[in-house]
Design a protein around this nucleic acid. Structure first.
Lengths: 204, 204
DNA sequence: TCAAGACTAGTTGACAGGAGACTAGTCTCA
DNA sequence: TGAGACTAGTCTCCTGTCAACTAGTCTTGA
């Protein structure tokens, strides 16, 4: 079954990692992620992805069926456990994910690179809305961290929240300065100016 | 054809935006993105995605076939132009993407939330490698920005690079402090400690 | 007490992007 | 003239996202 090292993904890693603690059924995995407040970093809202990921890991021999529960009222629940191959793979994935920044393509920078379609005034307005949303997100992260700290949990359990806070704060700060520059009139453009650039050093 | 507002994506937005300048064939779009140094923010390496995105936009009436070139040696090239519906949709997408931070699930925080699988020593080692890679990325962004600036291009053309620099710098700084804490022994854990936590307030 | 509405749990199908291989032609230059 | 690199388009597989559907359970309120 072990078809040479399947591809990694945040969800697949998380499934393998959680099964290190104890055998679980899919829904139990989803609960654990939510209970530990990790929904911000691992998408378990998409149940379809979770179930398919588990099937894939099972097919690749990284996890195995432990038993099939039949708790009267619930539908049948399959409990999975991690295999030795799964343990090895999880470590390899983790090292790879931590050591090498992967090029991802979030939508905000892509949008920024096309803002010629808006006027500076419109740009100011939408960025102000973003500013508000980011401020809320940041506050949410802060309270989540404070809650974990007062619960006496060790710092490693909230490293990913720390990280999110750091980058969210940086984004917030950057957007803030751009909005300021826009309002101060230090950052302006016109369609004509851009069309001229576009007509410039472009071949074909 | 206009099947109510197709889904947005960084690539789809970019295609629509570039066609605002002038009609282009798929390869011309890929060239423009590369020539303008936007490969960091829009993935045009995946030609399959590019061609399929264009097909989709065409099917949805956001772009239309302008003409079909037949430059002897090359395969047939279809030149597309943006439609009025495409112009409207592009503006709507852009406003949405800029104003509301979208929840995305990058792999680094997901990996961080599972680092129980490594020892503090291993963690230090992999994060140091990440530190090196981030430093290089940051340097690359700096030189890209400097090049654009000396070329006399206005600031809006490099806002997305500014943004990437800001968040990359924040990540770098955060990883640096974590590595320091690890080395100073101020951030330690053991498997046993974590197993105890896992056995704690968890249902089922 | 039973009915409306919300939540739980799993499944399904359409859609979209990423990875990588494959083809066939072109250009370089040794 | 022939090896190797690049250009341009296509194809298939894999995985994740979205949205809807089913069917059972729990809540609460008339």
């Amino acid at each position: 079954m072990t078809s040479s090292a399947p591809r990694s993904s945040p969800l697949a890693l998380t499934v393998l990692a959680l099964l290190h603690y104890k055998p679980l059924h899919p829904y139990g995995i989803q609960r654990l992620v939510k209970d530990w407040g990790k929904e911000q970093v691992v998408n378990v809202r998409q149940r379809a992805s979770l179930y398919r990921t588990i099937e894939r890991l099972n097919g690749d021999g990284l996890i195995a069926v432990r038993e099939t529960e039949r708790d009267q009222q619930y539908p049948e629940r399959t409990v999975y456990e991690v295999t030795d191959a799964g343990r090895e793979t999880a470590r390899a994935w983790l090292e790879e994910m931590l050591s090498a920044p992967k090029q991802e393509f979030p939508e905000f920078p892509a949008a920024l690179s096309n803002l010629l379609l808006l006027t500076p005034e419109e740009m100011t307005e939408v960025l102000e809305r973003r500013l508000g949303a980011l401020t809320e997100n940041l506050a949410g992260l802060e309270t989540a961290m404070a809650a974990e700290a007062t619960q006496g949990l060790p710092r490693i359990t909230r490293l990913e929240t720390e990280y999110l806070r750091a980058v969210t704060a940086a984004e917030l700060e950057w957007v803030r300065t751009v909005v300021e520059d826009l309002r101060a009139g230090g950052l302006v453009w016109s369609k004509e100016q851009l069309d001229a650039l576009a007509a410039g050093p472009v071949h074909q």
